[in-house]
Design a binder for these strands. Structure first.
Lengths: 138, 138
DNA sequence: ACTTGACTTTGAGTTAACTTTAAGTAGTAT
DNA sequence: ATACTACTTAAAGTTAACTCAAAGTCAAGT
C-alpha cells in the first residue's frame, strides 16, 4: 500500500504518516526499489493502533516509547505494560474531567433554555442570570 | 484577592491568569489604586468556570468568544447557548474516543498480563503476541 | 532613605504536534 | 524523449497555549 492509500484509509495526511515514522511512532516502513514507502499489513495494524491512541489524546512521546520497546522484542513486555497502564490512568482522569464539564454544560444550557423561553414568551429581553450574580452552577 | 492567592486557590500560575485576562478568557479584573489586580467574587467565579472548561479541553478561542458575548449583555444569550452546545457536542465526541481507547487498552493490558504470567510460570521469555502477527485487538 | 518582594507590562521564548517548502527522483503516459 | 504526478528528504514554518525575561512600580519593613 502506498502512503496515499494509507492516508485515505485512515484519514491521516501523508505528511503526518511520514512524521509519525520519523519520530518513531511507526516502525520503519518498507520501501520499493525506488525508495517509495510500501505499507505491509503489519504496518497498517500499527497505523490503526496509533491513530486510535492519538485520537484519544495519548501523547506522541508515550507512543513512540512504546513502539521503540515493542521493536526490541519480548523482553520489554513488562515495560510496555507499564506504559499502557500509565496511559489508561491518564485517559481515565481526562474522561472524568470531561464528564464533570459535560454535566456543568448541561446545567448551563438548561439555564439558557429556560431563560430564552421566558424572554420570548414575555416578548422582552431578560436579565443575564447564567454568568453573573445569580449563577448557581459552580 | 491578589493574583497570587487566586493562583494558589485554583492551581493556575499567575502567568496563566494574566494570559487568560489578556486574551479575553477572563473579563478585565479590577485593580487597586496602584494598578495591582484585585479579584472580585465574580472574577473568581469566572476563573473557576474557565478552569473547569480548560481542564476538559475546551479551547481558549471558544471560551474567549463566550466571555466576549457574556460581557455584551443579555442580547447575546442565544449565541452563547450555541457555543455551549457546540462545545458539549465536541466533548461528547472526545469522550467517546477515550471510551473506545480505554476498552482497547484494557484488552491489550489483559493480554500482557496473561502473557507475562505464562512467561514467568514457565521461567522463560515468551513471544510477543500483543503487537505483532497474532494481534487480534484491532 | 533604602531594601525587599510581589506585583506591573511588553515582548520574546517554549513545547507539542503537525504542516509546508524546497529541491530532487521514480515511474507512467504521450 | 519529455512531461506529469506522486513520491522522496531535510529543514523551516505554524498553531495553540502557555511560560519566561526584562525593566519598571508600589507598599511594607528597618
Amino acid at each position: 500500500m502506498t502512503i496515499a492509500q494509507v492516508s485515505k484509509l485512515y484519514g491521516l495526511s501523508s505528511d503526518t504518516l511520514r512524521y509519525y515514522e520519523r519520530v518513531g511512532l511507526l516502525p520503519a516502513v518498507g520501501r520499493t526499489s525506488g525508495g517509495v514507502r510500501n505499507y505491509s499489513d503489519e504496518d497498517l495494524r500499527w497505523v490503526e493502533f496509533i491513530k486510535c491512541m492519538r485520537d484519544a489524546g495519548v501523547s506522541v512521546e508515550a507512543l513512540s516509547e512504546y513502539v521503540r520497546l515493542a521493536q526490541q522484542g519480548p523482553g520489554t513486555a513488562e515495560a510496555r505494560r507499564r506504559i499502557l497502564i500509565e496511559q489508561r490512568t491518564d485517559l481515565e482522569k481526562r474522561m472524568e474531567e470531561i464528564r464533570k464539564t459535560l454535566e456543568r454544560l448541561d446545567f448551563k444550557i438548561a439555564n439558557y433554555d429556560s431563560m430564552l423561553a421566558a424572554g420570548l414568551k414575555a416578548g422582552n429581553v431578560c436579565a443575564d442570570t447564567t454568568d453573573k450574580k445569580s449563577c448557581k452552577d459552580g
